[in-house]
Structure formats: structure tokens, C-alpha cells
Computed example of a mutant assay.
Amino acid sequence: MAKTQLNVRVDEATAEAARRRAQQRGVSVNRYIEELVQQDAGEVGRTFVEAAADFMKQYEAVFAEEFEADRPAQAAGGRPRPKGKR
């Protein structure tokens, strides 16, 4: 994957903490920061999916009621019933 350079300014304490944590993990500061950003992005994605799942649970009945009216009724065996027979 192609890399791009990103310059960031942080206070000395933050820079030192990043250096120390990267060293403890056995990775470069660049790799450490990259991993932090990827983790953060993954958490945002999980948070969105969890919120969407909660929304669907809350409104499942509303969606089912709304869209059931548009769907043809199913006869036994999974075949649509003939029109007029519900």
C-alpha cells in the first residue's frame, strides 16, 4: 500500500508517550500511530453497526407492518397465493 506523509504537532509529553509506547510494543512511532488510527476507525464502524441494529430492533414491528402490506401473501410451500386469496 502506498504511504503518504502526515505531519502532526503535539506537545513534548505526548510525543514522548508515543515514543515510549511504540518502543514497548516493538514498533516504530509511525506504525504505532497508524495502528491507533485504524483501531479508532474500527470502533466508529462498530458503533454505527451496533446503533443500526438497536434501531432495527426498536422499529422491527413498524417495518414489518409497513412492508408486509406490500408483499404478496405466501401459501404453504413458499409459493405466492393467487390474487384475491389471502
Results as ranks from 00 to 15, higher is better:
1 M>N: 11
2 A>G: 12
4 T>D: 09
4 T>M: 08
4 T>C: 02
6 L>E: 05
9 R>H: 06
11 D>L: 03
13 A>Y: 05
15 A>P: 00
16 E>F: 07
16 E>P: 01
16 E>Y: 08
17 A>M: 09
18 A>S: 06
21 R>F: 13
22 A>T: 05
22 A>Y: 02
24 Q>R: 09
25 R>W: 03
25 R>G: 13
26 G>Q: 02
26 G>M: 04
26 G>I: 06
27 V>F: 05
29 V>Y: 00
30 N>F: 00
30 N>A: 08
31 R>M: 04
35 E>M: 07
36 L>V: 03
36 L>M: 06
37 V>S: 02
39 Q>M: 01
39 Q>K: 03
39 Q>D: 13
39 Q>A: 09
40 D>M: 06
40 D>S: 12
41 A>V: 10
44 V>P: 00
44 V>L: 13
44 V>E: 15
44 V>C: 03
45 G>R: 12
47 T>V: 08
48 F>T: 14
48 F>W: 08
49 V>Q: 15
50 E>C: 00
51 A>Q: 14
52 A>V: 09
54 D>Y: 01
57 K>H: 12
58 Q>T: 07
60 E>Y: 07
62 V>I: 14
62 V>C: 02
63 F>V: 15
64 A>L: 14
65 E>I: 06
65 E>V: 10
66 E>H: 12
68 E>F: 01
70 D>A: 05
71 R>P: 02
72 P>Q: 06
72 P>K: 05
73 A>F: 07
74 Q>V: 14
77 G>M: 06
77 G>I: 12
78 G>A: 11
79 R>H: 09
80 P>N: 09
83 K>N: 02
86 R>T: 09
